[in-house]
Amino acid sequence: MGMPDAEGHGPPEGLPDLPPEWGRVVVPDDASALAEEAAQLRRELRRRSTPTRRLRPPLHLPVVILLVALLTTIAGLAAVTWPRSPRSPDRPTVLPYPSSSEPPVLTGRPLPALDLVDVDETPVPLRGLLPAMIILVDACVCAEEVAAVAAVAPEGVSVVTVTGGRTVASTPAAGGPVTALADPAGGLRAALRLSPRPDTAVALLVDRNGTVVRVLPALSAADDYRADLTRLAA
Rank of each mutant, 00 (worst) to 15 (best):
M3V: 09
M3H: 08
M3Q: 12
P4Y: 03
D5A: 07
G14S: 02
L18C: 05
P19M: 07
W22F: 09
W22C: 02
G23I: 09
G23W: 09
R24V: 06
R24T: 12
V26N: 01
P28N: 07
D30F: 05
E36L: 13
A39Q: 07
R47D: 08
L55Y: 07
R56F: 14
R56A: 14
V64E: 11
I65R: 06
L66C: 07
L67Q: 15
T73F: 09
T73L: 12
A79V: 05
T81D: 05
R84S: 15
S85W: 01
R87G: 06
R91I: 15
P92S: 14
V94F: 01
L95E: 06
Y97W: 15
S99G: 15
S100Y: 03
S101R: 14
E102M: 05
V105Y: 03
V105D: 04
L106S: 00
T107E: 15
P110I: 04
D118A: 09
P131A: 13
A132I: 02
I134C: 08
L136Q: 12
V146W: 03
P154I: 07
P154K: 06
V159I: 08
G164D: 06
R166T: 15
T167A: 10
V168W: 02
A174L: 12
G175P: 09
G176Y: 05
G176C: 05
V178Y: 00
G186M: 07
G187N: 08
L188A: 01
A191Q: 08
A191Y: 03
S195M: 06
R197D: 04
D199R: 12
V202N: 01
A203H: 02
L205D: 04
L205P: 00
V213M: 08
R214G: 00
P217W: 00
S220D: 12
S220I: 02
D223S: 12
D223H: 07
D224Y: 01
D224M: 07
Y225I: 00
R231N: 10
L232I: 06
A234M: 10
